[in-house]
Design a protein around this nucleic acid. Structure first.
Lengths: 142, 142
DNA sequence: AATATTTTATGATAAAAATCATATTTCAGA
DNA sequence: TCTGAAATATGATTTTTATCATAAAATATT
């Protein structure tokens, strides 16, 4: 459903949302350690997220990554799209070209409601809103 | 969600269910063409499905693949498991180790009901039952 | 200004998934 | 019993995804 990259991206953003702000930046190295993911890989993902304005960054000493208030208003879907793109998220479970609402394949009816609910959720919830549901001291990142 | 292999497997089995029987076998070549998938790849998948007794086969001239009546009684989940294995199907959307029913991650509640419904369905429906929902002349396989 | 620290850009390597190729085995039919 | 048609076993190749490495750019601190 989600690529590894998307999962790491999600965790990274979530972690930054809970633990960073414009004044308190977090280095790739520390973030990687916190979410238990390979540093070099996470670095690359952070760079891409930053390039796509989903997270913010500052170079140099005392630099690092963080979420600006504007970043916090981004929708969750953005994280996933930044990593996996549009297509992966919408194609038929069986990869049938002709499958759609009008001509649903038998599996369509089973999986579609679920998936559209998931997508609708990602489309309607901001990072900030999502984060509020997390207990402050939560340590899910493992 | 499902690997490419699982999708091809699904289509293959579906096609065999609708178009084959012990007397009327279908060659890999023809099946591949019917479901618009690469022949060599499909062949390999068919071999694996056959090895796992999800489909049946006969070698030599006039040979080919087919579904026996006993094959038709197999559950849909078998096809997916044969290709993707157990793990892929159950892990947390975010890949969080600590995420489960007792300690669900925030996405868990969004995705879990959907997914378990999907799995429950695959677990409860046989190939035969599934096939009955298909119109006889259906050509979805493209 | 110099230095050290950090992101950024770029691309290399490794691992996994998808795809292809082929020699071997099996069997129907002549 | 020979021949050709098919699956089977095996493994090679290609593509994609995941991961790592490093030189260049930016900036805070001295």
């Amino acid at each position: 459903m989600l690529s590894n990259s998307a999962k790491y991206a999600f965790k990274s953003v979530l972690f930054l949302a809970l633990n960073s702000n414009a004044q308190k930046r977090i280095m790739a190295k520390d973030l990687a350690e916190s979410i238990q993911a390979p540093k070099a890989y996470v670095s690359k993902i952070l760079q891409e997220l930053s390039r796509q304005n989903i997270i913010s960054s500052v170079r140099g000493p005392k630099g690092g990554f963080y979420l600006s208030t504007s970043n916090l208003d981004g929708y969750l879907i953005g994280i996933v799209l930044a990593m996996d793109g549009e297509k992966k998220l919408h194609s038929c479970v069986l990869g049938l070209e002709k499958c759609n609402e009008e001509q649903p394949c038998p599996l369509h009816d089973v999986i579609h409601p679920t998936r559209s609910r998931f997508l609708a959720y990602l489309n309607s919830e901001t990072i900030l809103e999502f984060t509020k549901k997390y207990p402050k001291d939560d340590q899910f990142f493992e």
